[in-house]
Design a protein around this nucleic acid. Structure first.
Length: 495
RNA sequence: GUCCCCGUCGUCUAGUGGUCAGGACACAGCCCUUUCAAGGCUGUGACACGGGUUCGAGUCCCGUCGGGGGCACCA
């Protein structure tokens, strides 16, 4: 395998649904290999299935790729020298090759109806045979087939797999893969509507676009031998193939779903890239995690920048065994990446998420809060619960019992809040001042600092768990703090 | 059913004939502490099984079992 030549690597999705993590990993590996070798990363749209075509999926794909930062050098929207990059715009090209393979005798016209095909399959099932085509039309004399086609009879083009012998193809991850021709089907190359199937179009396009490395899901391993035959029949040179292991679901049982379902409580196991974005995953964390799902650098180093990933990636270290998706680990990565962000960067990334949650956060204020919550976030969407009380005029109602400090009772609370008010009213709201006076107040009351802080925190934040108290009060300001203390006192009196 | 692929802690993995089988997530305990985190330390935990080959096997071979994927005029 030549790793020093600039590689031309393509990601070639079919636009039938939203872009999911499996596709994202494949695209990532494509990207990494292309960049590592100084080559090109190409996006080609394989839309030969008109029935399942979904126009939204191309938009979703391209947006998701950009979110992940996997910018492509050639293909959809950006063009290039090997276009068009959408298969339905290349029909005339496939036409030429279908004539060629027909003429060479490696393919034949099949006039069987889908009804007959269904029946054949049924019979074969009953006879305990493998499902597949019975090659009924394989031996129709070419001249007769030509006549019937000219007369307007519908037909498909099928590959003429040799009846004996075997094929072997080289897979960069597993080595040689050999299969007996006898178990292969005469797969359809061109459908009766004149549009090629994946098998045919992919081989032609990869050849014409001078693709050097083909990475695709392991689910293609089964048709790999057919593709090898196609390369031979068409006289094309074989690129390097690498079938990536499937991604298993978190339970490790079965492959990861391509559809996400929402639990009754609204929670999801995201599988679409756009959902990861909505939930507040950082693209760099997702990229890093995905890179490690089936590949490793040294078994030691895990957190790697995009540049390091590019430099270190290699096909040789891609694993052959399936890997199950671990959300815990992804979350851990996300937290690490969040903590690596500068205050300004994190603040700016947080703003749109807070807005989406209906929180009208002011950037200036948030800038003061971000350092306090940075190490507490797993997802960007977690921020809302940490900061919402900073940006409301009136705190929503909360359970007054939350005010009770450890090992004390609700009756003790008014005294503590009263004391806090006194301690705070005359001072400057800076971290050090707050710290000194509040601790002193606790001392005077003969209670622990924690017992002093908890009622204040709840009165001011409306919740038990909140950012560190001094910073919170500082960001909130004296006026709001005292107002909320009064309000809590008032509520206690009326309860 | 048949073909193909795969098989190291619960999960992701390192390992390429001689290692106390290493790391990460998760989990547990301790430390730190102002709630919650983050951080530090420690711990629990694996070579699917059975045969070979070899002085020596997680590493090589065979079988069994287990898991996954394919077997469309879908990709």
């Amino acid at each position: 395998m030549t790793n020093n030549q600039p590689a031309r690597v393509r990601y070639a999705p079919s636009p039938t649904g939203f872009f999911h993590v499996g596709g994202a990993r494949t695209a990532l590996y494509d990207y990494l290999l292309a960049k590592k070798t100084g080559g090109s990363f190409i996006i080609r749209i394989e839309d030969t299935d008109q029935k399942r075509y979904n126009p939204d999926s191309v938009r979703d794909l391209l947006d998701s790729l950009r979110y992940l930062g996997l910018d492509w050098d050639e293909g959809a929207e950006v063009g290039g020298d090997y276009g068009p990059y959408t298969q339905t715009e290349r029909l005339d090209i496939y036409q030429k090759y279908s004539q060629q393979i027909l003429d060479s005798g490696h393919a034949y016209r099949c006039f069987c109806s889908s009804e007959r095909l269904a029946k054949v399959n049924e019979d074969r099932q009953k006879a305990k045979l493998n499902p597949g085509y019975d090659r009924f039309c394989r031996n129709i004399p070419p001249a007769e087939a030509e006549r019937r086609a000219a007369a307007g009879e519908a037909f498909v083009l099928r590959i003429k797999i040799p009846l004996e012998g075997s094929v072997t193809g080289y897979d960069a991850i597993r080595g040689d893969i050999t299969v007996a021709n006898a178990v292969l089907n005469d797969a359809v190359l061109v459908k009766s509507n004149g549009i090629p199937t994946y098998h045919f179009a992919v081989v032609i396009d990869d050849h014409l676009m001078k693709i050097t490395h083909i990475m695709r899901g392991e689910e293609w391993l089964g048709s790999f031998p057919i593709h090898v035959h196609l390369y031979n029949f068409l006289g094309f040179e074989m690129p390097v193939f690498a079938h990536l292991p499937v991604i298993l679901n978190p339970a490790g049982k079965g492959k990861m779903s391509k559809r996400e379902t929402r639990a009754p409580d609204g929670s999801v196991y995201p599988v679409f890239v756009h959902t990861f974005k909505e939930l507040g995953y950082l693209p760099e964390a997702l990229v890093n995690y995905l890179a490690l799902l089936g590949w490793s650098y040294d078994g030691q180093t895990e957190i790697m920048s995009r540049q390091e990933l590019i430099e270190r990636f290699s096909l040789e270290r891609v694993n052959a065994s399936p890997a199950s998706f671990n959300y815990d680990k992804l979350n851990n990565f996300n937290g690490i990446y969040i903590r690596q962000l500068s205050v300004e960067d994190l603040t700016d990334r947080l703003l749109p998420y807070l807005q989406a949650d209906g929180i009208n956060a002011k950037r200036d204020t948030l800038l003061k809060i971000t350092p306090m919550i940075r190490e507490r976030l797993t997802l960007l969407t977690d921020a809302a619960d940490w900061v919402d009380f900073f940006f409301v005029d009136d705190l929503p109602d909360f359970d007054l019992n939350l005010l009770t400090p450890k090992k004390m009772s609700l009756q003790d609370v008014p005294g503590i809040l009263q004391k806090a008010k006194e301690a705070l009213s005359g001072i400057e709201f800076t971290h050090n001042e707050l710290d000194a006076h509040l601790r002193q107040a606790a001392k005077e009351l003969g209670i622990k600092a924690g017992q002093m802080f908890q009622p204040i925190r709840v009165a001011v934040c409306g919740k038990k768990v909140a950012p560190p108290i001094f910073g919170t009060l500082e960001a909130l300001g004296k006026e709001t703090t005292l107002k909320r203390l009064d309000l809590a006192l008032e509520k206690l009196q009326n309860s």
